[in-house]
Computed example of a mutant assay.
Amino acid sequence: MPDKLLPTLPDDDANFLQRFQPSRLVLPVLLGLAVVGFLFYRSYRPGDLAPLAHADWRWLLVALLVLAARDLGYVYRIRHIAEAELTYRQALDVIMIWEFASCVLPSGQGGTGAAPFILEKEGIPLGRGLAYIMVTALLDNIYYVLMVPLVVLVAGAGLYPHEALQTGFVATLRVAFGVSYVFVTLYAGLMLYAIFVNPRSVRRLLVRLFSVKLLRRWRRKAYKHGQEMVTASVQLRGNGARYWWHAAVSTAFVWTARYAIIGCLIAAFVPMSAGTFLFIFARNITYKVILLIAITPGGAGIAEGAFPTFFGSFIGTATMTSFMVLLYRVVTYYLYLLLGSIFLPRWVARVFIKRPAKAATV
């Protein structure tokens, strides 16, 4: 996107687009590729990549279909949650820009922080947009809360990589996983209560909690978040069972597809049973904890570095594992950097440029 367009836009718009300048892509791409290059350099042995010649291309096709189904599921979900205020074209743009934002912003922020602004530029008022984003966050959290007990049941102690049992990594991961689960459960419960029971009491609770000296610096943000819950409650309470059922099913669909990608890719090169596939699916949930706490854009470097620890034992040689790291990041990260780079200029031209010009002629 040309820099010369930025000065012609309002400050909020310019600041938003500034975060997606091409120069911002250089660091995460170089960081991720540097880690993959180091993994290949350290692990390469002649003949280790022989399984590539015997790949089961049907599984690669399944992986691409799962990826496409996931994105179409996201498009359907955001359009349904937004009560059909978006066309399918708009919903596709929203999801692609959202995914792009998740790739170029730190994992802690992700695309969720940018999503209300994206929806506002599509003509959805900020209050309603915040309500819709809160629905996606609530349903995402509920999926996580419900799935964790199931994957613990499936994987048991194998939920954590045995390869690192002799280090402090697994102990740290168990603590992080437990803390994240408790936090997400409490947060999901708080959101449910705030949206459907008494949002104003939750707002007061947040303000009082963040009035404590150690937390006082975040009090204003806590009040703002509480106010967002009040707004969401007003917007969403009238929606019937059909609305929530479709939103919940589409959420389960997209997240299940998201967690299944790694298993599909590995199955293309390593024969596996259904039990092993489910085991990889379960371990993927603990792998995502690493990405949630990553401070780099899109988890670049950290995702690549942690992958062999979690999934190397299912793949075989270290060289094949390094190849799988690259393949996984290509289809789940670099692909969306590319798609975002294609969708973003067109989206900017549609919502920032053409719309004002049309309004001026009215």
Rank of each mutant, 00 (worst) to 15 (best):
P7E: 04
P10L: 03
F16W: 04
F20Q: 01
Q21A: 06
Q21P: 02
Q21W: 10
P22F: 04
R24W: 09
L33E: 07
L33Y: 07
V35H: 03
L39V: 01
F40V: 08
P51L: 09
P51G: 07
L60F: 10
V62C: 14
L72P: 02
Y76V: 06
I78D: 01
L86P: 02
Q90G: 01
V94T: 03
I95G: 04
I95Y: 02
I97R: 03
W98Q: 04
A101C: 07
T112I: 15
A114D: 01
I124F: 06
Y132N: 01
A137C: 08
Y143D: 06
V145T: 08
V152D: 04
V154Y: 02
Y160K: 00
A171S: 14
V175A: 14
V175L: 14
F177V: 07
L186K: 00
L190W: 01
L190V: 12
M191F: 10
R204E: 12
V207S: 12
K213T: 14
L215T: 08
R217C: 07
R219I: 08
R219E: 12
R220Y: 12
M229K: 04
M229A: 10
N239I: 12
H246D: 13
H246W: 15
A247Y: 02
V254W: 10
W255K: 12
T256D: 08
T256R: 11
A260N: 00
A260I: 05
A267D: 04
F277N: 03
F277T: 02
Y287K: 10
L291H: 11
L292A: 15
I293Y: 14
I295Y: 15
G305V: 10
G305N: 12
P308L: 05
G316N: 10
V325R: 00
R329T: 08
V330E: 06
V330A: 15
V331E: 05
V331Q: 06
Y336N: 06
L338S: 03
L338R: 05
S341I: 01
V348C: 09
R350Y: 11
K358R: 15
A359H: 13
A359R: 14
V362S: 14
